[in-house]
């Protein structure tokens, strides 16, 4: 099960990072959300995987580690706030700059690949 869990985190990181590296704001936001899932799952797993253990005192003998849970809980909420902020920033950026490109540039289509290489030096 550990292997599977770790693979899931890995896949989420892979997809998240790939989306974050895209050039338009919406995929970047999707990627950030995905990456925050991965981070939360990763942090959560620092308490190890615990099946069918008690979460509330007095309801069992073995308890799941509460500390990572508490941290991840606030991380989820803050993650939402950050996602929201980025989304609004993207909307504002689009309306101020007229483009949803993350570099704040005007849309570049496939036809002028050379131009693009000039503008976005990587």
């Amino acid at each position: 099960m550990e292997l599977l869990y770790a693979s899931c985190v890995g896949v989420l990181v892979f997809c998240g990072v790939f989306l974050i590296l895209r050039s338009r704001t919406f995929p970047v936001v999707l990627g950030l959300t995905m990456l925050s899932y991965a981070v939360n799952l990763f942090l959560f797993s620092s308490g190890r995987l615990s099946f069918n253990q008690a979460a509330v005192l007095g309801t069992g003998t073995e308890y799941a580690d509460p500390l990572p849970q508490a941290f991840v809980l606030t991380a989820i909420v803050i993650g939402f706030a950050m996602t929201a902020f980025v989304v609004v920033l993207a909307i504002r950026g689009r309306s101020d700059l007229g483009s949803d490109h993350v570099d704040g540039e005007f849309p570049i289509t496939n036809n002028n690949n050379n131009d693009k290489n000039k503008k976005v030096k990587v």
């Binding site: 890995g10 896949v11 989420l12 990763f42």
Partner: peptide, 8 residues
């Protein structure tokens, strides 16, 4: 992804 999965 591979690195994070390995660490995890």
């Amino acid at each position: 992804g591979v690195v994070v999965a390995s660490i995890c």
